[in-house]
Structure formats: C-alpha cells, structure tokens
Design a protein around this nucleic acid. Sequence first.
DNA 1: CCTACCGATCGGTAGG
DNA 2: CCTACCGATCGGTAGG
Lengths: 188, 188
Amino acid sequence: MTTRSREDVVQAAGRLFAARGFHGTSMRDLGEELGLLGSSLYSHVDSKDQLLVEVVGNGAELFQGLVDRIAASAAPPDVKVAELIRGHVAIITEHQDQSATFLNEARFLPIDNRSAVVAMRDRYEATFREIIAEGIRTRAFRAQNPALASILVLSVLNALIRWYRPSGSLDPREIADAMVAFAMDGLR
Amino acid sequence: MTTRSREDVVQAAGRLFAARGFHGTSMRDLGEELGLLGSSLYSHVDSKDQLLVEVVGNGAELFQGLVDRIAASAAPPDVKVAELIRGHVAIITEHQDQSATFLNEARFLPIDNRSAVVAMRDRYEATFREIIAEGIRTRAFRAQNPALASILVLSVLNALIRWYRPSGSLDPREIADAMVAFAMDGLR
DNA sequence: CCTACCGATCGGTAGG
DNA sequence: CCTACCGATCGGTAGG
C-alpha cells in the first residue's frame, strides 16, 4: 500500500465508528487501521470531531438524496412508500458503515453540526408522514395516525442496520420485499 | 442527600450510559452525577466494567422474565404475541435506562459476560420465532418466514427506546395497542 | 467518602 | 508520514 488519501481516512473512520462507536475509537486505533501513527492522521484532518461530522454528513446525504427523489415523484402514495422502503434498504445494505454511524453516533456530533442532522432527520420522517397522510386521504391506506404509522415503518427500516449481514441468508432484495409487504399490511 | 447506596450508583450509571454511552461516560462524570468524586465510587464497585455488567444484566433479566412468563403460558399464539408485545413495551417505557443500556451498550461488555447476554437475546428471539411458527401451524398466522417475521416485530419493539419520551403525546398503552395492531396485520 | 496520587492513554502540535 | 512531544483526562489505588 502506498500513501493514503483523505478519502481512505474518512472511510476507515466510518468503519471503526460503526464497529466500536465514536468514543470507543481513538485516533491511534484509526491510525493502526490504516497502517500509520495516530499523529499522522492530522495531515489529513483537523480533528477527530471533523471525521465524525464528515462520516455522519455522508450518511445523511444518502437518505437526503432518497427523500428528494421520492418527494419529486408523481407516483401514488403506495408506490412512493414502496420506493422509499426499497431505497432505504439499499442505502443501509450498501453503505453499512455510514448508515450505522449516522444512526448511532450522530448524538456525539458537536452541537453546531448536530442541529443540521436533526433537521434533516425530521425532514425525512416528515416526508414519510406526509406520503402516508396522502394515502389516507386517497383511501389507499386505512391507518388513522400518520405520525405513528411512519414511526413504525421507519422502526423496521432503521433496525436493519442492527441485524443485516451480507453473509446472512437473506439478500437485500428479499429483505426489501418482506418489508414492503409488512408495511403495506400495516397501512392498507 | 445523605450517603449513597450501591443501588444509587448502579442506577446513576444506567442513566449516564443510556444518555452518553458507556465510553462517553467517565467515572468522574458518574461521581459528579451523584455529588461525589470519581474515586469515591470504588468503595461501591470494583470497576467501571462491573457497572456495565450490572446495568446490562438488570436489563437482560427484565426481558428474560417476560419471555419465561409467556413461554409457560397455554394461551393461543396470537394471544401470546400480543402479551409479548405489551410486556416489551412496558419494560422499555418503565425501565428506559436499563433498556437503552441493554440494547445499545451490551457490545462493550467484557467478552466473558458478553456471551451470556448474546445467548439470552438469542433465546428471547427464538421464543418469539417459535410462537410465530406455532401460529403458522395452527393457521392463526399466514406469514411464511417465522425468522423474518420475528425480526420485523422485534424491530418495531426495540426501536421504541429510540423515540419514546414520557412527555410525548402517546402513552405506553396507546403505543402497545398500535404495535399489537401493526404486528397482527403483518402476521395474520 | 476524601486526599493525594499512579501509570496509561487521550486528542493534538511542532518540526522535519 | 514520522519523531518527539504536550497538557488533559482516563480508570484505578493507598491510606485515612
């Protein structure tokens, strides 16, 4: 291995933050993961906090992109919900480290950056809620409480980061199918 | 406040581990929470690890007790699932700190203690799975995959620790009702 | 439960 | 990217 790029450092940080938590990872651990000393990381980044901001930010952008795409769609609510679920499963299964860090470590962000992530998460959930509310109006769904229904569906989706393993018996496609069916049964 | 009991220390540890994570909590933080010095805690406990073992163990026992109770019941599968859901919601809403530490910090347990908790968690999920499999045999449920179905229901249940706030608009009873309905729709 | 510490480790810097 | 550090903080102990 030659010299490392800033990208390599951020990626390795995501790996360790996901596996051991932000506070359970030292800059020396991260250096070791990359085959260099902890102090050498400071030629790539300004601080440990900055690494967390970057990894969480990258995770947030993935979900942000999905919700933007769905919000712009003209599809009926049940199709939108299914697309949101499939997209969410794809993000978590294809970007496990960033997803885990985004979902589990965002609370350790410096306050100035935390509010932006909270706002983004709120917007994500609000989009979900509005699509469900729209489905209730068009009578595609019979759920009475859109806020609660969106939380329950998001619970199933976000919990995936806790149990998904690429080596497991279910591939992302099967998982997404099952979640779409489960959510539709709960909403319809 | 007079002198603190060992119980007080364990309880405060649960509070801080839940709020800041095990690695985000120092013994000095914990001392401050109790109005004494970090070093004074060692007259109550042997190590920081011991506190984690105790808090996670207390959390594990709560869920263990629930699963034992349901496993001994002769009720039909759909009733058992509903009881499991209501019990699970009760534990999380009534013992937030222990539940959060059990669910989020068990991975930081010393290896010797970790395996016992993993085994207990596996048993909890296995019970869930068997009840669902039983319901499929008696044709109370139509889900095809008991392993997947139990994971999805448990996802909804465990995610509660992430969003439940006693000051929120939904009380535990309403939450449990909604989760029972959601799970039954997904299974039936 | 405090005083007074200990060695180890932390995030981070200066200079090359 | 390493050498050689820095002050701060960590978990923990001896003795009272």
